[in-house]
Amino acid sequence: MYYEQFSKKLETISGITVTPFHKDTKEIDWDGVKENAEYLVKKGLEVIVPCGNTSEFYALTVEEAKEEMKVVTEQVNGRAVVVAGVGYSVQTAIELGQHAKEVGADCIMIHMPIHPYITTEGAVEYFTNIIEAVDLPAIVYFKDASLSDDVLVQLAPLEKLVGVKYAINDLPRFAKAVKKMPAEHNVAMICGTAEKWAPFFYNAGAVGFTSGLVNLYPEASFELLEALENKDDETVWKIWNKLVPFEDLRAKYAAGNNVVVVKEAMELVGLNAGVTREPVAPLGEQDKKELQELIASWDLKPQKV
């Protein structure tokens, strides 16, 4: 019953945190991590995800990832569900997951393995071993289109699996995956590609969506969520048209802009995002100009925690 109830908590926006790095040293600005977590809590986020891809997870050392989980969990202090991202090798992911448990996180999100050679059977074993070894509810981040959705079907009976962050923008495929997941296992199917795709995924069976935009403009994200829940199509498409240029900018260069656009936008409205780490470069001048014009059109006022 606990895990069934937990999956219901994911029927909302999962806010993926950013990791602010100092401009000169690219060391983590831990005060900024706290400020950004506090901002999300005060803006009403019910699910907060440190060490996600928008957090630049793969640019963090294992020790930095552990510290980020700890700092965010302590700052949130029970006011929202904290879902800690884990990944790398099976043993490293387990180590991170066990640390997440120790510092008080509520759930883990298991990143898609970054590996040049991966099979459906190997992926099932990877996720299963991590889920079974960590005493927390788990979400699987599923984004490798070359893998079969049978991975998810085989994982569904695991009691601790409470959600899937589905990040393959193939709507017929997603709809089929939702129908394949047995209802009795109570696995929340989440749109893993933010506001641009949320309306389409909702129509195909999603119950929540992830967001990087909430780090600077959560009001718009919540307006979209409410409209989706109320099946208010007029408002859905009004908000979608407003936000899609931002998400299009993030999607440029095979999504190479994903994080840096969020960080630049946060800085434009007075929030502490810092710079990106390699291999993410600063935003190009033309993209920066487009972003400035977009933020101005939204009439966002300078913000602070």
Results as ranks from 00 to 15, higher is better:
L60Y: 06
E234P: 01
V244Y: 10
N215W: 00
M189V: 10
N53W: 10
I130C: 03
V207T: 12
A133E: 03
E223Q: 14
F21N: 02
V262P: 03
D299V: 07
K34C: 08
P282E: 13
T73P: 00
L152H: 03
L147E: 15
K289R: 10
L216D: 04
L60P: 03
N215D: 08
V83R: 03
K304Y: 14
Y58I: 05
A123D: 08
N257H: 09
D232S: 12
G284R: 05
E264R: 09
P172A: 13
V260Y: 01
L96N: 08
L96T: 13
Y141I: 09
E102G: 04
K143W: 06
T193P: 03
K101S: 02
F201K: 01
Q292S: 12
M189F: 15
D135R: 03
V164P: 02
V41L: 05
K231I: 01
Y88T: 14
D135T: 04
T193M: 15
V140D: 01
N272M: 02
S7R: 03
T210A: 05
V275Y: 09
V76N: 00
T25K: 11
G205H: 08
I94H: 04
A254W: 09
H111N: 14
V134T: 04
F201S: 01
E95D: 15
V305S: 09
V262G: 03
L96S: 13
G78D: 12
L171Q: 09
F21S: 05
Q303W: 10
L136Q: 06
K252R: 12
